[in-house]
Write a protein that binds this DNA or RNA. Structure first.
Lengths: 228, 228
DNA sequence: TTTTGTGAATTGCTTCACAGCA
DNA sequence: TGCTGTGAAGCAATTCACAAAA
């Protein structure tokens, strides 16, 4: 019986879900498989092999098969995977077989761009409400279709219930991001996609993050020392 | 009937190259360390321990120490890491101790939002030119500061030389992304940050990708089955 | 044939645990 | 005491390679 764990910081994700045996990278790749399958659906091909999928995504065929097999037996030996069937199955797994209402916090430059981003709706994510703390923005219609009015933060909890919202997109400056995220969780949000360039600590809420600069830094790292 | 390969010789794998000693995830985390160090720099603290850094980022102290040690001996036993010193060192490693000129292709909604995104300049990435294929947009000033004029693709190669550009941001629709990426590489771009929701195949060019919907899908996956 | 699904082998990454230094 | 840097240990992810299926 070891007692010295008292001072240790808690270890990352350790849950008893059945998904625990599935590698996290496999779950990330599932989205890529779906994306590629939708491309294949646009062609005449009705089936696709693990090799073909892998080639398009820069992965080995074994990787593709193993990843998909974590979630069930979707393939047909000698044939491959039936495109429409696999799309349905993967959507089901990812939870995107149904539409999601999403709210957005932050109606600045980035927030407004996200509002008009078609890719979200294509995948079944609908921005159903927009919030901001800036009193100048509240009440204004800011989206391209002029359908969304910027609401004050106070209305968030009620709107979440009314529109059955579970997911939120956070596009506010870094220095207020943690506070805003806390308010979102309080108001009932269960998952946050964070665009602020800062790591948010949230225990009870699923988190995903996109830091635009970080990706440029990774490119910079790869090119460092290269001739101009 | 294929004979069982009882005499199979297991060939030892080619020895790993020295440049591959550093785990890819460690390189990704380096950007996060830098980001957090810049937060700490805003406080009065002059030093920070691996434990403190880790806590802020959801990582173990051992992870932080090991990651940083891949790149050199930056710490001081009993003290921790000197914030300003480590910031300089990490910037140097990432290549962001100097400014980078970046070009943007695609002056649509997302492209225009990226132009006005302050985060890039803060990290030393300056959008120095904007390109689009849309004849209606060419010649127009589209950024907030009204300093950038949308140029035709034909001018890309010359501009790249003139402004010493190595990095490009790609914000065009998925169906033209591969073609545009090829043209960028032809024109001399060495690294591409791709926002189009499609996997691009490029052998001679460093690639990074951001698919906004994919991150929402990951959240959807984590919440699937949760009560509405 | 072609191609899946899957244990086994292998590679890669993270955590442990402690010597050594301030 | 506090904290880093680092081999060794442990765990996670990927690749291999082949039986089975079409």
């Amino acid at each position: 019986m070891v007692l010295r764990t008292a001072t240790k910081i808690r270890r990352p994700r350790r849950s008893t879900r059945k998904t625990e045996q599935i590698p996290t990278p496999a779950i990330r790749r599932l989205s890529l498989y779906l994306r590629q399958l939708e491309v294949v659906l646009g062609s005449e091909r009705r089936t696709v092999s693990s090799r073909q999928l892998g080639e398009a995504l820069g992965l080995s065929d074994a990787q593709v098969r193993k990843d998909l097999a974590y979630f069930g037996q979707f393939g047909h030996p000698g044939i491959g995977y039936r495109v429409d069937e696999l799309i349905q199955r993967v959507r089901r797994i990812l939870g995107t077989d149904k539409n999601w209402n999403v709210l957005l916090v932050g109606a600045g430059n980035l927030g407004r761009a996200l509002m008009s981003y078609r890719g979200f709706a294509k995948k079944g994510f609908h921005i159903a409400a927009v919030f901001d703390t800036d009193r100048e923005l509240i009440g204004k219609r800011v989206d391209a279709a002029q359908k969304l009015t910027v609401q004050p933060m106070e209305e968030m909890a009620a709107t979440i219930v009314k529109r059955s919202i579970q997911l939120g997109v956070l596009a506010v400056p870094a220095d207020s991001a943690q506070k805003v995220a806390d308010r979102m969780v309080e108001a009932g949000i269960r998952g946050i996609l964070n665009f602020a360039p800062i790591t948010l600590r949230q225990d009870v809420c699923a988190m995903a993050a996109v830091d635009l600069s970080v990706h440029l830094e990774q490119l910079s790292f790869q090119l460092r020392g290269a001739g101009a």
